[in-house]
Amino acid sequence: MWFTLDNLATAHDTHEGAAHSSTGLSNVKLGMWLFLGTECLLFGGLISTYMLYRGRVGTGPRPSQVFDIPFTSVSSFVLLMSSLTMVLAVSAAHKRDDRSTNLWLVITALLGTTFVGGQVYEFTAFYNEGMGFSTSLFSSSFFVLTGFHGVHVTVGIIMLLALRGMLKNNKVPGSRSETVEMIGLYWHFVDIVWIIIFTLIYLIPA
């Protein structure tokens, strides 16, 4: 890594003052990618906990008894498509097309809300089938993992809507397109975590 960075630093030397950073890269973007790197260790820990405990159901239902694969497949698909709409929002923001940016941001937030709504429905259904938070090690670790993911999606929705409001009122400090891009990175990360959860937790039986 340092070799890449040093080459950049040398390039920077030759035209001093052209860029404000040693690498020519944006602070926020470096910080965001690093943050996403650290989030891997957070979700990794939660997924490992689930993997360890998925078979320990006690007297409660087994995973295969409660999971509704067709339903979750649809909500997974919805989240996946929200990544497409998000990337279109970022693309529009780079082209300074405010109308499209706003539109795609709202659609992304709506798709995200659909996903979270589906999760609320799923949790309620599980609860009604006798799988509460503290029923078994399986249920606790399942709810903690998917709950954390759901909170991440919810935070993402709030950011998307707040961003839309700020864009509309011209209140975004700093670069508009970069702000959209950063929230986009976060949103995609939440999506890739779900790609893993969908396979490891739902599709592969305990």
Binding site: L5, D6, A9, D13, S21, S22, T23, L30
Partner: peptide
């Protein structure tokens, strides 16, 4: 940690290579 890493990677004076 995020703040200081970005600071070290990105805020160095001209010529301040990593080594």
């Amino acid at each position: 940690a995020i703040n200081l890493i970005v600071t070290v990677l990105n805020m160095r004076a001209p010529g301040m290579k990593l080594m």
